[in-house]
């Protein structure tokens, strides 16, 4: 996937489950089928409203979405997604967030939130793909916003080595401040955090950049182009697929965890040897 040189370097690596599936010989074919399917499905969702009104299935999907919205989302976001800015239960207005935001928030389980809080945590998602599509279709009718991207947009297929390196630069300029140099995540004020980026699929990474969920800023396609986003995703994938050259990565948290291990294994181990050296051995009597 990353050109011949990279693959060569990585002979014999057992890559993570996700990536290994992606790298399966059938992956490209499956991806293509999936892509075509999604393209068809999405086109029908995001097509201009004139056509929507003409299309019964889409209208039906929006209606289904409206019903799901009333049950799962309206208590915070208002019956018509107008948002609630006062009271104990608050939620932002959803006009203009677009189908992409709904897809990200619901498929990662962040929405609906279990309880009001500083930050919606990712958790197992309870909605089926159809239900998410219906919700997204409904919210998309509230106002123009980013649509769910097609696989070709977010999959860094056949990315060049040069783009990977540029993706690294973009990552370190735009992302690492919050998400750490290895995508291990980091702290934000008042108990909030930037989640780890390890093991996330391409679509999720892309949607997060596109929609700026919660405290994360938006990186719109006009500014950080889809090509740039793919470069970042490609860099992250490559970074996480390459084994730690120096051995055990020790959590990838940098000097703090290294210091801890220097004390425990280094000094601790040597003190253990010191105790053996100075111990009085067993006596014959």
């Amino acid at each position: 996937m990353f050109g011949p040189h990279l693959n060569q370097d990585m002979r014999g690596i057992r890559v993570r489950l996700l990536s290994s599936r992606r790298r399966h010989p059938a992956a490209k074919a499956l991806l293509l089928v999936f892509g075509l399917f999604m393209m068809g499905a999405l086109y029908s969702v995001v097509a201009p409203p004139v056509q929507v009104s003409a299309d019964d299935t889409v209208t039906q999907q929006v209606e289904e979405g409206r019903a799901l919205f009333a049950v799962g989302c309206a208590s915070c976001h208002g019956l018509n997604g107008e948002g609630q800015t006062s009271g104990t239960i608050q939620g932002p207005p959803l006009a203009g967030v677009g189908a992409a935001a709904v897809d990200f928030q619901v498929s990662t389980g962040r929405m609906p939130m279990a309880r009001p809080g500083e930050q919606a945590a990712a958790k197992p998602n309870r909605y089926s793909d159809e239900e998410i599509a219906a919700l997204a279709a409904y919210v998309a009718t509230l106002g123009p916003g980013p649509a769910i991207p097609e696989p070709a947009e977010y999959t860094p297929a056949n990315i060049s080595a040069e783009d990977l390196a540029r993706g690294g630069e973009l990552f370190r300029t735009n992302c690492s401040a919050c998400h750490n140099f290895e995508g291990a995540g980091g702290a934000l004020p008042n108990g909030k955090y930037a989640p780890p980026l390890v093991g996330l699929d391409d679509k999720r990474l892309y949607l997060a950049m596109l929609t700026g969920p919660q405290q994360m800023p938006v990186f719109s396609d006009e500014v950080l182009t889809p090509e740039d986003k793919r470069a970042i995703i490609g860099y992250l994938n490559a970074l996480h697929e390459q084994p730690a050259a120096g051995g055990l990565a020790l959590g990838g948290l940098g000097p703090v965890s290294e210091g801890l291990w220097a004390w425990i294994v280094g000094l601790g181990g040597l003190v253990f040897f010191a105790m053996w050296i100075a111990a009085k051995g067993a006596k014959a009597k």
Partner: peptide
């Protein structure tokens, strides 16, 4: 800059 910018222990 990166999150987790720390010096050695």
């Amino acid at each position: 800059v990166t999150a987790g910018s720390q010096p050695d222990w």
